[in-house]
Simulated assay, not measured.
Amino acid sequence: MMFNIGVYDPDAWAAANKSGTPLPGNHSPLFAPVPKPTIQTGITAMTLAVLSAFEQRASGQ
């Protein structure tokens, strides 16, 4: 399973959109996600996905 979550500072994202210059992707040596909100969002998303899968299995779906 793969999650895509936002990892960039909102100001950097807005500047890149305005200039048309793409931000570095996750395989670039220049990739630099904002750590705290990125990790918290990823943990929350993964936890909810696992809990949802357990609920579906427990209810026989």
Score class of each variant (00 low, 15 high):
M2T: 13
M2E: 15
M2L: 14
F3K: 13
F3M: 11
N4Q: 11
G6V: 06
V7D: 08
D9I: 04
P10R: 08
P10E: 04
A12S: 10
W13E: 15
A14I: 10
A15Q: 14
A16Q: 12
A16K: 11
N17W: 11
K18M: 12
G20W: 13
T21P: 02
P22S: 10
P24A: 05
G25P: 00
N26G: 08
H27L: 06
S28K: 06
P29S: 08
P29H: 05
P29I: 12
L30Q: 10
L30C: 04
P33S: 01
V34E: 03
V34S: 06
V34R: 01
P35K: 03
P35N: 04
P35I: 01
P35S: 04
K36Q: 05
P37H: 00
T38G: 12
I39C: 05
I39L: 07
I39M: 07
G42S: 11
I43D: 01
A45P: 03
A45K: 08
A45Y: 11
T47F: 01
T47P: 05
T47E: 09
L48H: 14
L48R: 14
A49M: 13
V50W: 09
L51K: 15
L51A: 07
L51W: 03
L51V: 00
L51F: 02
S52A: 06
S52H: 03
F54P: 00
F54I: 05
Q56E: 04
Q56A: 04
Q56K: 06
R57A: 15
R57I: 12
A58D: 10
S59R: 13
G60T: 09
